[in-house]
Simulated assay, not measured.
Amino acid sequence: MSRTLDGKVALVTGGSRGIGRAIAERLGRDGAVVAVAYARDTASAEEVVARIRKDGGRAFAIRAELGEHGDAVRLWDAFDAAVEEFAPAGGVDVLVNNAAIATSSDLDGLTEEELDRVFAVNVRAPFFIVKEGLGRLRDGGRIVNISSGVARIALPRVIAYSSTKGALDVFTLNLAKLLGPRGITVNSVAPGYVDTDVNAGWLRTDPEAAAEAAAAAALGRVGQPDDIAGVVAFLASDDARWVTGRVVDATGGTAL
């Protein structure tokens, strides 16, 4: 594995599980010092840190639950308190806004509380994580927002979740324009069906549903977390220096 991120510092929210875990481990293998941000599952976060270190990388975990006012400040305070042990200069080069929650309610079943919660975690938190982090983000840095294929594919049963990802893509577009003068690129990555614990309840127990999910992709299979991590690693690298303001479809060609 090439060490394309040697000397860089990365922060991955929702880094203890699923796609976030794969991203954190990949950036660690690529040479970055990785801050694994998580909400509650300390054991899983420490497992990710241990795996990165076992592979020769450097990493640390920071706990900061998102979805409440002040969450971004608390996250960055935790980051600042820990990062100097691994990168004395502090600061961050790669910010991956991955943490999100899904809601399975359709429009009829959606409550105001549910809508507020999913937007607080999936949209408001990334907004303020970026806002509070701009003084720490170095020129020439990278922001990668993890969106979803459902921002372009109608799936009414998750209408609130889909709407948050559409909002995140608009955030990406405007940030790219705003931060371009600093050489900072901002992009979204939009996964499709991915075999993670979040989807395990149906994807790993219902062969018919799994087959339908695989058939929906032009490449004929369900995605794996490493598939998404590879796209993020590219966008975090210098090879992607001329790509910004884009939504990179990582659905395996779902619903073409």
Score class of each variant (00 low, 15 high):
residue 84 E to L: 15
residue 125 A to I: 00
residue 17 R to H: 14
residue 108 D to N: 08
residue 43 A to G: 13
residue 38 Y to D: 02
residue 120 A to H: 09
residue 234 F to V: 10
residue 184 I to T: 05
residue 95 L to G: 00
residue 169 D to H: 12
residue 244 T to D: 01
residue 118 V to I: 10
residue 13 T to N: 04
residue 15 G to Q: 02
residue 132 E to S: 04
residue 174 N to V: 07
residue 239 D to I: 03
residue 172 T to A: 12
residue 146 I to Y: 05
residue 65 E to V: 10
residue 69 H to T: 15
residue 89 A to C: 06
residue 253 G to Q: 06
residue 88 P to F: 04
residue 85 E to W: 07
residue 64 A to W: 06
residue 216 A to Q: 08
residue 123 V to N: 01
residue 117 R to G: 06
residue 116 D to N: 11
residue 29 R to E: 14
residue 84 E to Q: 14
residue 187 N to H: 12
residue 19 I to T: 05
residue 128 F to C: 01
residue 17 R to S: 13
residue 207 P to M: 06
residue 129 I to S: 00
residue 65 E to H: 04
residue 111 T to F: 04
residue 77 D to F: 10
residue 114 E to C: 03
residue 222 V to P: 00
residue 98 N to Q: 10
residue 253 G to R: 05
residue 242 W to F: 15
residue 103 T to C: 04
residue 225 P to S: 03
residue 93 D to V: 05
residue 31 G to C: 09
residue 118 V to M: 05
residue 64 A to C: 08
residue 65 E to I: 06
residue 7 G to E: 06
residue 169 D to R: 14
residue 82 A to F: 08
residue 246 R to M: 13
residue 190 A to K: 08
residue 142 R to Q: 07
residue 41 D to Q: 12
residue 32 A to I: 12
residue 21 R to F: 01
residue 126 P to M: 01
residue 146 I to G: 02
residue 158 V to Y: 02
residue 156 P to A: 10
residue 156 P to R: 13
residue 158 V to S: 00
residue 78 A to K: 09
residue 50 A to Y: 11
residue 52 I to E: 01
residue 108 D to F: 12
residue 50 A to K: 15
residue 64 A to L: 06
residue 156 P to T: 08
residue 214 A to P: 04
residue 67 G to M: 03
residue 146 I to K: 06
residue 36 V to N: 07
residue 124 R to I: 10
residue 47 E to F: 10
residue 246 R to A: 14
residue 71 D to M: 13
residue 199 N to G: 11
residue 249 D to R: 07
residue 168 L to D: 06
residue 58 R to L: 11
residue 56 G to S: 13
residue 165 K to N: 10
residue 25 E to Q: 15
residue 106 D to Y: 05
residue 31 G to T: 05
residue 16 S to W: 02
residue 86 F to C: 05
residue 204 R to K: 11
residue 142 R to I: 05
residue 92 V to Y: 01
residue 33 V to P: 09
residue 28 G to I: 04
residue 79 F to C: 04
residue 252 G to T: 02
residue 35 A to R: 00
residue 222 V to C: 00
residue 2 S to T: 15
residue 194 V to W: 00
residue 114 E to P: 00
residue 174 N to P: 02
residue 49 V to C: 07
residue 194 V to F: 02
residue 40 R to A: 15
residue 178 L to A: 15
residue 124 R to M: 10
residue 96 V to G: 01
residue 122 N to W: 03
residue 66 L to N: 03
residue 164 T to C: 08
residue 219 L to T: 02
residue 151 A to K: 05
residue 40 R to E: 14
residue 254 T to G: 05
residue 27 L to A: 11
residue 14 G to V: 07
residue 54 K to V: 13
residue 127 F to G: 00
residue 113 E to Q: 12
residue 227 D to N: 08
residue 12 V to D: 07
residue 31 G to F: 02
residue 218 A to M: 11
residue 202 W to H: 12
residue 211 A to D: 10
residue 251 T to G: 07
